[in-house]
């Protein structure tokens, strides 16, 4: 766990990653909060908070008496959300740093292309 951010947010992200990566398929059941708590060695209340974050966003939904399930279309929605985050967290700072160093956008795309070929 990363010290700088709330644990429940990190738990939610971990579950999101598993949904994006396909480890947790849509309409399948996710582990219980107690199982998450035991696995990540955190307080069950914290795990519940993380799961509830995803319930509020409609990524997970509750089946009464059975447990939590991945919502239909969750994967696509998460990918869209993460792409927006990618722009804000990676692309914007990248451009700022590039501008600071006098790297033009042509040079920048050349760099990216070269990096891809490696």
């Amino acid at each position: 766990m990363d010290e700088s951010r709330p644990i429940f947010v990190q738990i939610a992200e971990q579950i999101e990653n598993d949904i994006i990566g396909g480890a947790l398929a849509e309409e399948t059941q996710v582990p219980s909060t107690n199982e998450f708590a035991a696995f990540y060695r955190i307080n069950p209340a914290t795990a519940l908070k993380g799961v509830n974050l995803l319930v509020d966003e409609g990524i997970l939904y509750k089946k009464r008496g059975i447990g939590m399930f991945v919502a239909d279309g969750a994967q696509g929605r998460l990918v869209t959300k993460r792409r927006d985050q990618f722009r804000a967290e990676f692309v914007r700072p990248l451009l700022m740093e590039a501008a600071k160093l006098g790297i033009t956008s042509t040079q920048l795309s050349d760099m990216i292309r070269k990096e891809e070929q490696q």
Binding site: T33, N34, A37, A38, R41, I42, N43, P44
Partner: peptide
């Protein structure tokens, strides 16, 4: 100890 505590507390 921590693992058993969490497990049993959850149950």
């Amino acid at each position: 100890f921590y693992d058993r505590l969490l497990e049993d507390y959850a149950q």
